[in-house]
């Protein structure tokens, strides 16, 4: 359940941002989570409710943007949708690929007041 650590990290980032902006609370938080980031969204949501109690995120609207996985084949150069880390290039069946999108794990924006 490393998702709990991730949520605690988000709470920490939110608390620091609120303090720095001289605000009191977070109205809305926008997260970016890549398909290949190693995060289970269900587990994250489960951890979320427990971890945000009595924090600046307690009443925040949560907006999660899922970023689809994309890779480039290091053999033929084909760019393709990668849903699992072991997906081969659909053109030449090569497993040596460079992930170009989908590892994101970010707090993108916060609306504070």
């Amino acid at each position: 359940m490393h998702e709990l650590s991730i949520v605690l990290g988000i709470v920490d980032i939110a608390a620091t941002t609120v303090q720095k902006a001289n605000a009191h609370t977070v109205d809305r938080i926008e997260l970016e989570i890549g398909e290949l980031a190693g995060i289970e969204t269900d587990a994250l949501l489960f951890a979320w409710d427990a971890a945000i109690k009595n924090t600046v995120l307690a009443r925040a609207i949560r907006d999660i943007r899922h970023v689809p996985g994309k890779a480039r084949c290091l053999d033929c150069g084909e760019v393709f949708d990668m849903h699992e880390l072991y997906d081969p290039c659909p053109k030449c069946n090569n497993y040596l690929n460079e992930i170009i999108q989908g590892r994101e794990l970010k707090v993108k924006a916060l609306t504070v007041s």
């Binding site: 993108k108 924006a109 916060l110």
Partner: peptide, 11 residues
């Protein structure tokens, strides 16, 4: 309300 574009890696 103020929106802050943070773009911060959680890790």
């Amino acid at each position: 309300a103020v929106t802050i574009e943070l773009e911060q890696d959680i890790l």
